[in-house]
Every structure is written in structure tokens, then in C-alpha cells.
Design a binder for these strands. Structure first.
Lengths: 189, 189
DNA sequence: AGGGTCGATGAGACCAAGTCCCATCACTGG
DNA sequence: CCAGTGATGGGACTTGGTCTCATCGACCCT
């Protein structure tokens, strides 16, 4: 038997999500979160740099995305490359069993400005990562920046649809479709 | 004679920028900022909701941008509309006399994660505003979202160039040019 | 068996951000 | 001269976040 209950960070994250749903983010104290997880404030800050971060995974998403970009066929255009990456994300991360969790999490996020701010930062960091990964495979800088922005937009659209209760499609196809629509809408004056 | 020194928020903002440059954002206390401005912590938080916000203007930029979008010729395409708005911004806000200040401010922003996070939020809020302004003049939703993202990207590019020391062009033309390049780069696979 | 080590946790002091409430002060108008 | 008003000061209080040291349980080694 383990000396302590396993997966302290997981328990903290779960407790946090519960409490945020019950009382709201601002009315929830880090001490309360830790207590519900059977831990203390010290341990909380050992695993998460701040209170917001408890709702943001350990950056596995970024890794998957970069991998997806790097492993796309060399001949693929930038948007197709991003499409492949989003597809990979759908297969590995935005799986059906994670849908409910994602939905709950998203509801909490949109209810609080501080959390939305962190989300904004994540989006921009992610976009920067995509740009770097694209330039690494030879995409010209400006093209990479445009592709990354459009990719992030398609992600957002697909994610919202995926979360939507009366919709049962997988994330991958939704992202593909969103990317196509974004591309055709991108022929602007 | 006024009973108190005039323009308390302005003095606070100036003191903050000075101190952030001297000692860095994290090593500067709100109390220190207030003292240098001849005020107190209480007064600081009367004018700014938090420490970060002292570096972000009173949202005049958003107003100007929305105005610029709304006042564009009705026949203009979405990107031209955004271009007009950026142009207006260049004439009214990103004026030559504000260049040095913008440059100093930007250096402080990029040096601190907390400030970059706030900047990310501002960008996303601004993009949302642009989308709303575009849809209000009849642009289809998806088109508006793409145009706003590309507009924000062009803004970023133009701003970086404008800030760049060995460059003397005005913001407006830089933004126009950036927008053109972004549009041509946006024809992707 | 018993002592040493190690990794995860707890305890508590401490600082700064941010909130709140009330006092003060300088002027203004009646 | 007095009451009101608006900007400021003062200080108590909560919470997020940091830091340092103590504890505790298992495992190893002899």
C-alpha cells in the first residue's frame, strides 16, 4: 500500500473543479481545495505554480500539437500540416471520454476573468509554438504566422462544437471541417 | 491652484513605468509606485483595478478601433475595413510623439510573464470587439473572425516595425502594408 | 532488528496584492 | 460660518504565493 493517497495533483485538480463549480472560482480558497483533496496549501503550490494553473494540464497538448506538425508529410501545405496536428490532438487528447470534463472545465473558465486571461495566454503561447514548428519545417515566417492564427481559430471553432451537448462528432473531423471553412473564408478583400 | 497635484493616474503610470524599467515589474511594489507619485496605495487602487493595469490605457484604443470599423465605407471588404481602422489608430493614437513611450512600455511588457498574460487578454478582447463591429456591419460571422485575426496579426507586425528604432515610418502605412502581405500569405493550402 | 536515507507532505512565518471602511482635508456654496 | 463634496490617506483584513524547516513513512543496508 502506498504511504499516501496516489495522484495528489489529480486529486487537487478534481477538487478544484468541483469547488469552482459549486462556489465559483473567486469564492474558493486554495486551502479549501487542498483540504477537500486531503492535502494542504503547501502541497498545492508544490504541484501548481498558482491557483489558475490547476485547471490547465501539464502542457501535454502543446507537445502533441508540435509532434503533429513535425510528423506531417513534408509535401503538405501549412494548413494541411496544422490540420494533421489537430487531427492527432483529436485522437489522443480530445477523446470522447474527456468530453464531459472539458465541458465542465470550459464552463468554469468562461465564468471568470482571471481564468480567461490565463486561457488567452495559453492560446498565444500555443500559437507561438505552432509558428516555430512550422518555420522549422521550412514554412516562411509570415505564412507560418497566418497558418497558426487560422489554425488556432479552427481549433476554437471545433472545440466549441465538440463541447456542444447536442453534437456527437469527434474533434478531429470537426477541426478538419472548421479548417476548410476558415480557409475558404480567408480569401478576403 | 488645485488642492492636489493634477492627473494622479498619469503620475502613477509614469512612476510605474520608471520603476519597472529600473527594478523590474516583480521587484516593484505598488506602495513604491504610489510613493514616487506622491500618493498612497489606496489612491493607486482607486484608479487601477490591479497592478498590471497601470500599463494599459483606459481602453481608448478599443474605442478608436471600433469607430474606425464602423465608419469605413459600406462597400469596403472586411480586410479593407480593418485596414481603415488601423489607419485611424495610426493617425490618432500611435502618433510619432508616443513612439518612445510605446517602445519603453513594450520592453517592460515583454520582460514579464504576468504582463504578457494581460497583454494576451487585451489582444483577445480586442479581436472579439473587432468581430462584433464587423458583424454589425453585415460581415458573416466566420469571415469576420478570420478578418479580425488577420487584422490583429497585421497590427502586431506593424507595431513591432513601428517600435523598431531604425525605422521612421508611421504606423498607418506600416499596418496597411502588413495587411496586404498577410492577405497574400493567407492563400494557403 | 535498528539506524540512515530519501521523497512526499505538513506547519507556520512572512510578504505583497487587493478589498473595505472610515477619517481627513481643502475647497465650495449657501 | 457652516454643511456638503470629492479626492486622498490610513489601517485592518483576506488571500495568493514563497520559503524554510520539521515530520513521517517506507526502503535499504548491515
Amino acid at each position: 500500500m502506498a504511504r499516501w493517497q496516489p495522484d495528489a495533483p489529480g486529486r487537487l485538480a478534481a477538487a478544484a473543479l468541483d469547488l469552482f463549480e459549486e462556489n465559483g472560482y473567486e469564492n474558493t480558497t486554495v486551502i479549501e481545495i487542498a483540504e477537500r483533496a486531503g492535502l494542504t496549501k503547501s502541497t498545492f503550490f508544490r504541484y501548481f505554480p498558482d491557483k489558475r494553473e490547476v485547471l490547465f494540464g501539464r502542457g501535454t497538448v502543446t507537445g502533441l500539437l508540435l509532434e503533429g506538425i513535425a510528423s506531417a508529410p513534408p509535401a503538405a501545405g501549412p494548413l494541411d500540416t496544422v490540420g494533421n496536428a489537430l487531427d492527432a490532438l483529436g485522437r489522443t487528447f480530445f477523446t470522447a471520454d474527456r468530453r464531459e470534463f472539458s465541458s465542465r472545465r470550459q464552463a468554469v473558465l468562461s465564468a471568470n476573468a482571471e481564468l480567461r486571461e490565463r486561457e488567452a495566454l495559453k492560446r498565444i503561447d500555443l500559437t507561438a509554438s505552432m509558428i516555430e514548428a512550422l518555420t522549422r519545417r521550412g514554412t516562411p515566417d509570415l505564412t507560418a504566422r497566418v497558418a497558426a492564427q487560422l489554425g488556432a481559430l479552427a481549433w476554437e471553432i471545433a472545440f466549441d462544437q465538440w463541447i456542444d451537448a447536442d453534437n456527437s462528432e469527434d474533434f478531429g473531423p470537426l477541426a478538419r471541417q472548421a479548417l476548410i471553412e476558415v480557409r475558404t473564408a480567408g480569401t478576403l478583400r
